[in-house]
Amino acid sequence: MGKFISIFFIIAQLSLGSLFVYAGVRKFIPSPARKSSSTELVPGSTKEHMIKFIGGLKANSYFWPFLGIVEITAGLLLVSQFFAVAGPSCLYQ
Rank of each mutant, 00 (worst) to 15 (best):
L57V: 15
L57H: 03
L57K: 05
K58E: 09
K58C: 01
K58Y: 04
A59N: 13
A59G: 06
A59Q: 12
N60D: 15
N60Y: 04
N60S: 15
S61L: 04
S61P: 09
S61R: 14
S61I: 01
S61Y: 03
S61K: 14
Y62E: 00
Y62C: 00
F63Q: 09
F63T: 12
F63L: 15
F63D: 05
F63H: 06
W64P: 00
W64A: 00
W64S: 00
P65L: 04
P65F: 06
P65N: 03
P65Y: 11
P65D: 05
P65T: 03
F66L: 09
F66D: 03
F66M: 05
L67P: 04
G68S: 08
G68R: 11
I69Q: 04
I69C: 12
V70N: 09
V70Y: 08
V70P: 07
E71A: 04
E71L: 14
E71F: 12
E71R: 04
E71V: 01
I72N: 02
T73S: 15
T73G: 14
T73L: 15
T73F: 14
T73A: 15
T73R: 09
A74C: 06
A74I: 05
G75F: 02
G75P: 12
G75C: 03
G75W: 04
G75H: 07
G75N: 07
G75R: 04
L76Q: 07
L76F: 13
L77D: 06
L77R: 06
L77E: 07
L78S: 14
L78D: 11
L78E: 12
L78Y: 15
V79P: 10
V79Y: 06
S80I: 00
S80D: 00
F82Q: 13
F82P: 01
F82H: 12
F82I: 15
F82D: 08
F82M: 13
F83L: 09
F83A: 02
F83H: 12
F83W: 11
F83D: 03
F83P: 05
F83K: 10
F83E: 02
F83T: 02
A84V: 10
A84M: 05
A84F: 10
A84L: 02
A84P: 02
V85P: 03
V85S: 14
V85D: 15
V85A: 12
V85H: 11
V85T: 14
A86N: 11
G87A: 07
P88D: 03
P88A: 00
P88F: 01
P88N: 02
S89T: 13
S89W: 09
